[in-house]
Design a protein around this nucleic acid. Sequence first.
DNA 1: TATTAGCACTCTACCTAATCGAGTGCTAAC
DNA 2: GTTAGCACTCGATTAGGTAGAGTGCTAATA
Lengths: 352, 352
Amino acid sequence: MELDERKKKILHAIILNYQETGEPVGSRTISKYSDLQLSSATIRNEMADLEEMGLIVQPHTSAGRIPTDKGYRLYVNHMLETAELEKEAEPERQVPQAADHVVERLDRMEQVLQQMIKVLAANTNYAALVSAPKYSRNKVKFIQLSRVEEQRLLAVVVVEGNIIKNTIFQVEESLTEENILSLNLMLNSSLNGLTIEEINLDIITKLKEQAGPHADVVGKVLDAVAQAIRADDEGLKIYTSGATNIFRYPELTDGSKAKDILEVFEEKEQLEELLTDKLNEEGKPGIQVYIGNEMPVQSMKDCSVVTATYSFGGGMEGTIGIVGPKRMDYQKAVDALQTVMGQLDSMFRKEE
Amino acid sequence: MELDERKKKILHAIILNYQETGEPVGSRTISKYSDLQLSSATIRNEMADLEEMGLIVQPHTSAGRIPTDKGYRLYVNHMLETAELEKEAEPERQVPQAADHVVERLDRMEQVLQQMIKVLAANTNYAALVSAPKYSRNKVKFIQLSRVEEQRLLAVVVVEGNIIKNTIFQVEESLTEENILSLNLMLNSSLNGLTIEEINLDIITKLKEQAGPHADVVGKVLDAVAQAIRADDEGLKIYTSGATNIFRYPELTDGSKAKDILEVFEEKEQLEELLTDKLNEEGKPGIQVYIGNEMPVQSMKDCSVVTATYSFGGGMEGTIGIVGPKRMDYQKAVDALQTVMGQLDSMFRKEE
DNA sequence: TATTAGCACTCTACCTAATCGAGTGCTAAC
DNA sequence: GTTAGCACTCGATTAGGTAGAGTGCTAATA
């Protein structure tokens, strides 16, 4: 059986109508509210074919049809392809090679992201989520050790993107000003320019060995610095907004579905899969869509998610996503995401 | 009508039974499962009295009784009073006057608090929430300005409790090392020892005036420092955990109640009222309970909240709370909170 | 006087049957 | 290839009927 143009139109009509109403859509509805002038009987025949192809189903005999995952997949793929084409027609958008110095106050970026998804959720009436960028591939720019109290030191590490890490720690012996100065020199000369992920145990032990006489103090300092650098870098931070929007969609709220979904939003762990899996997928960056059972998290099999990957160069990237019911307005979601991406771009360009 | 001992016992029995089952409790149940040997008929008479006093109600004729807010209030007050007495019987617990140096790595405290409420929620099967402590009354201990790039400076401010604030900012002119050194001296001598809330616009403008020749640079630096100090201090941070536990209680989930409650948890703003209102209340520190309509947030009128205020001295205090259905196990909630308070105490004492 | 057995009464929860209506598949006519 | 017509299916809604839990009241009892 082949999918001719007319069948596509009918499928599309079904998807759109189901999107609005949330109710199974019957042949008569299509017959009346679509531009193809066909009787309900004809639509019925076509629908039978579409069902045979696995693109739509009846929840029960004598009900209208709703799209299957496969049906949505077809529709979404088509949608993304046309978007792709239009994009290529446009002049290539300037992808700003966000150099380090462009990004001022990057430590506030997480707040910006939170604000973004708040707006995103409010505008779309779906749930939005974002993973904060990993900066483990950013390079150390500046390290400074200073004394706060007699036996208490403050270590401050600045990495590319002006992300500041710090810690206060205690040392047994009182260090002289010269000690601290030379430690500073040592730290900067040996760690400067390395990426965060390069500063692993190996490096640290190596440096400890080179320390010589003051090995124990140096060790302590190095541990503190390493720990400051690593602090809350492992464990992808994920923010969400508008999770309660799922209550707008009856198909997500009956039974214990709402509970299951909201639990996923509460335990951020599982959301991580949602946002990270995409990146590996066929090297294709940009917009990704998971529909129903394609979702990596089983308890969200009645949902779909649309994600986009943002990047500020220097390996700092993360993902923004929109979660809604399977019948969500994919076009709207994609558009909203693209708008947000544009805003992020201009925001971090403007602050130049 | 007076509330004799027997009536109290019956009320208590009703509360306990309703706590377990969530169903209205009838006279026969009380007659069988309480230590007072009375027939159901007698209980019925007593129940009629209790109803007249407004302590219990029938959801409808021919249903059992459930406690009213007033009934719970009576019970909780009694519970808290006896707890108070027992406490006084104990030797006064050492309230550690958490000196500054006791608290190591206080900047991680928020993570500790989050972990705490996670455990709290898991143990009680209620929702837990906590407000991060305000430290606006803490004093500035140490300020350091250093150069990161040619025209880019890093300001680090350490306040009591070893809380570290920082910011990176840009200056037009290149400063010499001596400039930076003298700025450091100036900042430390003028701001050191002041509390965060004392460093307001007045102080800043005053200092700017004293700056003399380099007024513009100094101004910029001062602004940056002030801004670093204030950063995200306004806007009480609130963390929650186990919000989805409300799905365990049918009376909170039918209709749109679940939605309403979860929305409050999502928009933290309203939770703020829950946690802050308590402090004013009759100067009585420690455990506070709000029941049903006593809740400051209308959409949570089917819930109760038990809160406790923690403090690390130096004006750093916040509130931990447990939110559950009105029929929650208040005793358990209070005990759990007290345990957590104890842990917090010992945790920040141990790290000495 | 306090307690209790007994009973009529009330109301919800649940089950059943009946009806309605939306939507289908199929057949036959166009 | 399209469409009108029709029998059929099945969920949703409604109405009626029953069971059971629990009450309030009265009268008997200790």
